[in-house]
Design a protein around this nucleic acid. Sequence first.
DNA 1: GTCTAAGCGAGACGGTACGTCACGTCTTTCC
DNA 2: GGAAAGACGTGACGTACCGTCTCGCTTAGAC
Lengths: 193, 193, 193, 193
Amino acid sequence: MTDHRAPRYDKRTETIMRATLDLAREVGYAKLSIEAVAARAGVGKHTIYRRWPSKGLLFHDSLLTLNEPVLDYPDTGDIMADLRRQIHGTVDLLGTPPWGPLYQALVGEAQHDPAVAASLNERFIRPQEEKTLARLKAAQEQGQISPDFDLDLAMAILSGPLYFRFLITQEPVTHDYIDRILQALFDGMEPRP
Amino acid sequence: MTDHRAPRYDKRTETIMRATLDLAREVGYAKLSIEAVAARAGVGKHTIYRRWPSKGLLFHDSLLTLNEPVLDYPDTGDIMADLRRQIHGTVDLLGTPPWGPLYQALVGEAQHDPAVAASLNERFIRPQEEKTLARLKAAQEQGQISPDFDLDLAMAILSGPLYFRFLITQEPVTHDYIDRILQALFDGMEPRP
Amino acid sequence: MTDHRAPRYDKRTETIMRATLDLAREVGYAKLSIEAVAARAGVGKHTIYRRWPSKGLLFHDSLLTLNEPVLDYPDTGDIMADLRRQIHGTVDLLGTPPWGPLYQALVGEAQHDPAVAASLNERFIRPQEEKTLARLKAAQEQGQISPDFDLDLAMAILSGPLYFRFLITQEPVTHDYIDRILQALFDGMEPRP
Amino acid sequence: MTDHRAPRYDKRTETIMRATLDLAREVGYAKLSIEAVAARAGVGKHTIYRRWPSKGLLFHDSLLTLNEPVLDYPDTGDIMADLRRQIHGTVDLLGTPPWGPLYQALVGEAQHDPAVAASLNERFIRPQEEKTLARLKAAQEQGQISPDFDLDLAMAILSGPLYFRFLITQEPVTHDYIDRILQALFDGMEPRP
DNA sequence: GTCTAAGCGAGACGGTACGTCACGTCTTTCC
DNA sequence: GGAAAGACGTGACGTACCGTCTCGCTTAGAC
């Protein structure tokens, strides 16, 4: 798989990605067409196909490259507060138009196109997981988390319900919802007296 | 929203739905077309459009109607065992071709098409949730679950990680994974001595 | 080979053919595109492809159908005068814009596309030959042409030089040129005393 | 118009022309593309455009340069026999694959592209005519042809029917056909007793 | 013998058109 | 009188070439 991130400095590449996001915002991902992106960017269709093999990967690349998510975890020493802060930030971003629907569409596309799924995992999900795991591990070493607790599982219990709301029931993901999940998780995670 | 379940007895309707599923199995949901369904079913396109407003809803209806999921919860008195049995059954179904990819495609479509999302929730997600909640409630009344535990949250923690694996990381959902989630959930849910 | 003449009464078919000729007149056959014809005719490309398999045959059909050539030979009893009249009429038509260049383009296309060549022969060349031959035969029976003269050859000597000028040297075909050919032909054809 | 013959010694130019003819033989002139010629010749597209302004002229130049036609007329003293020999040779060449179709395509292209028409006339048609006329003139001076016969017309009557068969009816041009035309021409041309 | 300009391969680029597919609507034809 | 069959305008697909252009890399010939 070629690295689509490299040519970020290429002006034309960036023009195309901006046109992609602009159009996606305007008409939605489903009605996005490579033809329209090319027209908007003032570029031949070939120039797009030369860079991305499908609409899905073009969109994914545009979304991630132009919005390099800042997911560096704070480490204040209080794992509960740090997780809370981080996840609140994430859901706030998803609640800010137009990012929610666009990210939703991206995940939707991943269900149809394995290449998008792979790219999504490699460039977005996994890095985020790793940072979260690192932060959890640090907390575990400081004794804030029960030493035998499976941190991978913690990850899943933190992320899963959030995505469930976001993708399946499509209700807004509130801070309160996050807090309740965190609480429930910690009731089981924290060391017993 | 019209009730698409009613004409189950209509032979033509059923033929179309079968053709839909057959084709979806063969070429995948993404490449499914109403044109092809009509041809396969030996039916005019009008006859399809008269019954369903979009490919997404046709597919959703076909999937649910022809595969009426059996999700009646057992109640053996042991909530842990009952949940385990039920969820194992579900993931087994998703692991049986072609249901996994097809359900995945359905959820993917729901991200692009609000009507599919609504239909999915109403006809599939909510009923399942309700049955699970009822079973959890019974367990709570029998003292198997801490009386102040938020059962909605329990639902979310049970479903979320499962969907996360299924939709996002797209790794196989194993029985072991289910068991670990259940365990983690109960370590926090069960009444403390 | 389907008969493209039949649906002359079809209004849409005729609209397309008119648009074809209009565009051919405006930009020339070489720059004619099915895309542009469709746009000009207010018609989908498929509607054109459904009727004609190639640009060449569309053009040929348009040219012949909308300009049903009147090639009924007069028979005044004087074969020389009748041939002269007929051929003068033909070259006059070719000299009247835009027919000359369009017919030239049609013959050019026939060199690249056997289907056009076949169609050109069947629908245009052969009928004309047959009428000319019939007129020559009548003259031969009336003693105006030597009884052992090969009439097919006469045809070739009448048509050949005309096409040679028209296609190869691309000089204008004048009445005088015709007359000289006719004269040369008759010097050899007419019965000797 | 630049003289494209000069750089015959240029190795690269010759490589391109050979690639052109090779490809034309393989896929036909209509499907020939400068892009493909460049690739086949292992040459940049610019290198072709620097030498020829269009596909038509590239093809024409390739055809003529690499197949310098030998059209030097014999002069045995018998004009009939000499014409016969010469024309038989020409049609034999056209009957030898792949020259017939290629020359046909060249004439076809001349109908669409005036530059090709001009080049065809200047480099191929006119020289041939001149040699034929010179031979005819010699014969006329020797009394083999009627002194007042229009030799240009003789040319036209010799070439025209041949091209008519070749381009329009696209039947094979046989030796017999040539002989019959020659005979008919001479019945009118030769001096009467 | 170095420098420099031209020629070169490679191929990216904005375009145009291709011929195909499916959309959702509409019309015709038959049962 | 409803359904199959499929024609229709529309719009997008992904591909092929067009003719122009920009890259570095030779490669002579002029100094």
